[in-house]
Design a protein around this nucleic acid. Sequence first.
DNA 1: GCTTTTGTTGGACGGTGTACAGTCTGCCGG
DNA 2: CCGGCAGACTGTACACCGTCCAACAAAAGC
Lengths: 212, 212
Amino acid sequence: MGRLPGERAGLRREDVVAAALAILRRDGLDAVSMRRVATDLGVAPNALYSHVPDKSALIDALMDAVLVDIAVPARGGWRARVEGILTNTRRVLLAHPDLVPLFLARQSVGTNAMRLSEAMLAALHDGGVRGEPAVRAMQVLLIHTIGATAFEIPRRDDPDPAGRARRGRQAAEVLGETHPRTHAVAEHLSRYAGEKAFRTGLGWLLDGMSAP
Amino acid sequence: MGRLPGERAGLRREDVVAAALAILRRDGLDAVSMRRVATDLGVAPNALYSHVPDKSALIDALMDAVLVDIAVPARGGWRARVEGILTNTRRVLLAHPDLVPLFLARQSVGTNAMRLSEAMLAALHDGGVRGEPAVRAMQVLLIHTIGATAFEIPRRDDPDPAGRARRGRQAAEVLGETHPRTHAVAEHLSRYAGEKAFRTGLGWLLDGMSAP
DNA sequence: GCTTTTGTTGGACGGTGTACAGTCTGCCGG
DNA sequence: CCGGCAGACTGTACACCGTCCAACAAAAGC
C-alpha cells in the first residue's frame, strides 16, 4: 500500500459496499473476498474492519444494496401492483444470480427490503387482505418468487443444458445405484424450468389468497 | 497418519459420504471440510480425491443422502399423498438446516430426488394433472416447500428472536438511512414465519392446480 | 511371475477470514 | 493554540481451506 501506517484513505462504509458490489457484478460472489475488496480500494485488508464488523455483515449490506433497483408500480389494481413488484424482484434477482440463495438462507431486513415489504402490504391491503393474513400472504409470495428465481438459475460450473442430467448420473453412481428414469426426469426439469413456473405459481397463489 | 505411503485404508465412496454426513449432523455444514472428513476417517486429505472428484460432488452426494429419510405415503387420495410427501420433505429438511438453501441453489438430481419426483408425478397423475402441467406443478410445489423451509430456519449466528430486528437496524445503518418501521416489520416476519405459511401456501397451490 | 492400475502419503501452493499490536491523523476540550 | 484521544490504517501472523504433484506400495490383471 502506498500509505504509511496511520495515514487515512478516507473510506466510508458506503465505499466498501460499493466496491464489493462492483466485484460481485464483474466476477461473481466467490470473487468477493475481504482481500479483493481491500485491494480494489487501495487499502490493507484489515482496514475494512473499521467500517464493517464482519464479512457476513458486508454480504448483508450487499444484498440490501441490490434491492434498490426494484421499482414498485405506483398505479394499477392491487393484483397488478403485487405482480409488478414480484416481477421486478425476479428481474433484479436474475441479474445477481449468486445472491439469490442467500436471500432465502439469511432473510434480508435492510432498508430496501422494508420498503418493498411496505409497498406489498399496502397493495394487499387494497385487495382486502389485511393484518396477520397479509403478512402470511406476503411471506408466501416472497418464498415463491425467490424460490422460483433460485430454481431457474443454472449452476455456474456446468452451464450446458446436458449438465444437469450428467450430474444426475454422477450422483446416482456415487450413491451406488442407477435409476433408469434419472436422465429423463432431469431433462424434464431443465426443459420446463423458468419463467412459466413463476407465473403459474404466482397466479395460483394470488387466486388462493383473494378467494372467499 | 499411522499408515505408510501406498498402504490402503479400504475406503469406499459410501464411507466418505457417511463421514461427511456425520460431521454435518454434529457440527454443521461449515465444519464439513475435506480435511475434517479425512481426519475423521483416519486418512490424509488427498485420499478423498480417489473416491470423490471434488468437494462440490461430495456435497451433491450429501444432499441426496439426506433425502433417503423422506417417506412417500402409499395410500390415500392423491392430494393427501402429495401433502404427505411434502410434509415429510419439510420435516427432513428442517433436520438439516444448512443444506436447505443448497437444494434451491443446486438442483438435486440424485437417486432419491428422482424417487420422490416419480412418486409425486404419480400422485399428480391420479389427480388428473399430467404431462407438462404435472412437471410444472411439481416444480412449483417443490419451490414452495423448500423455500418455505429455508425461510423458517433461523440464522446460526444469532439464534435469539431479537437478532433479526437487530440485523435490520445494522443493515439500515450501513445503507446510511433509517426507517421507522424496520423494527416492526422484522418482528412481524419472525413471529409469523413457519409452518403456517407452509400449510397456507400449499393449500392455495393445490387448489389452483386442481381447478378447472 | 510380471505389469499395470489404483489407493494413499508427504509436501506444497495459493488462497481465505480475522486477531494483535503498533503508528499516524483529525478532531475536540481547554 | 495546544494536548490528548478516538479511531483509521498498516504490517505481521495464525489457523484454516481446496487441491495439485510426485513417490510408493498394495491389489488386480494377464
